[in-house]
């Protein structure tokens, strides 16, 4: 979420000559960098150093191992289903909440936030209570041969649950801040509702949208606790990447475990770099035009 993009008026107070004395600036930067180093950089470096402890060949071999490949495929499938669904929901929810006033709005926003703060232990448990053999729907599902938990649908559901609020959470403040004058103008000029959304709203929110998608995606791929409860841990079938990491680690296969883990860390870094690049391109374009 780079300032240059979110603040289209392009005002940089540092450049405007108002800033702290150099000493304080240096101090602040040092403190921040130290904090991030201790909490982020050291753990990250540790992941990669352990992943490469046995060399590049072992690293690549452990990523090519059949069970790991299946885990990667399952994780991608899960993200591919859950992210678009939550994207659609996020847009609908933000539209309703930001553009309209109705009683109970705070309650609705809170309920949308709720999955975020529900312990992964609970978010897995609820689907077991619902779809488990001893649960509400379990006996019926079992009689009809439908598998939800301990199979892919359960993993997808749990993932949708844990990534539920992210897109909506990104969009609501953004759309609230932008108000609705532009949309109203378009509508008065005769555009249809959908055209207004596509031509007016969407360009305004696309960066928030992208950021929400990136967050959802990262979380969808990295979720461990909830998925662990509903997965059943069947090797080569219902293990996602994070579960595969745990399995490898518990098999005393430390280098391979961290190699697979580094894949997720790497994925996160790549998406974030890509995002920065896109933002930079947009700013270049706007400054030329």
């Amino acid at each position: 979420m780079h300032p240059g993009v979110l603040a289209p008026k392009g005002r940089n107070p540092a450049a405007a000559g108002q800033s702290e004395p150099l000493a304080i600036r240096l101090l602040l930067v040092t403190v921040v960098l130290c904090f991030l180093a201790v909490f982020l950089v050291v753990p990250l470096v540790s992941v990669f150093s352990q992943a490469l402890a046995k060399g590049w060949e072992a690293y690549l071999a452990s990523l090519y191992e059949p069970d790991t490949r299946i885990a990667i495929r399952l994780t991608l499938l899960t993200a591919a289903i859950s992210v678009p669904l939550n994207l659609l929901f996020g847009i609908a929810a933000a539209w309703a909440i930001a553009k309209f006033d109705f009683p109970g709005k705070s309650l609705l926003v809170t309920l949308i936030d709720l999955p975020f703060s529900v312990s992964p232990v609970i978010s897995g448990l609820i689907y077991v209570l619902l779809f488990g053999l001893q649960g509400w729907l379990g006996p019926w599902l079992s009689a009809h041969g439908i598998k939800i938990i301990f199979a892919v649908p359960g993993i997808v559901l749990a993932t949708i649950f844990v990534t539920f609020p992210f897109v909506a959470r990104e969009l609501i403040p953004l759309m609230e801040a932008q108000g609705k004058e532009e949309e109203e103008a378009a509508l008065v000029l005769g555009a249809s509702g959908f055209t207004t959304f596509r031509r007016v709203t969407l360009p305004n929110i696309k960066w928030g949208l992208l950021y929400g998608v990136i967050l959802s995606n990262a979380r969808a791929m990295g979720e461990f606790g909830a998925v662990s409860v509903v997965s059943g841990h069947i090797r080569g079938a219902t293990n996602t990447i994070p579960l595969q990491v745990e399995i490898l680690y518990n098999d005393y296969n430390y280098a391979a475990a961290f190699a697979v883990a580094s894949l997720l860390a790497f994925l996160a870094v790549v998406t974030l770099v890509a995002k920065s690049f896109v933002e930079w391109r947009i700013r270049e374009n706007s400054s030329c035009g």
């Binding site: 289903i81 669904l85 659609l88 439908i146 199979a151 892919v152 649908p153 559901l157 959908f194």
Partner: peptide
């Protein structure tokens, strides 16, 4: 409006299809 509805419908179908398609994919 009609198009809005179609999109919602599409999304629901995706949700349901996604669940069904993956059901029993590993039954052997």
């Amino acid at each position: 409006m009609a198009r809005d509805k179609r999109i919602i419908f599409l999304a629901l179908t995706m949700l349901i299809l996604g669940m069904l398609a993956s059901t029993g994919a590993f039954a052997g």
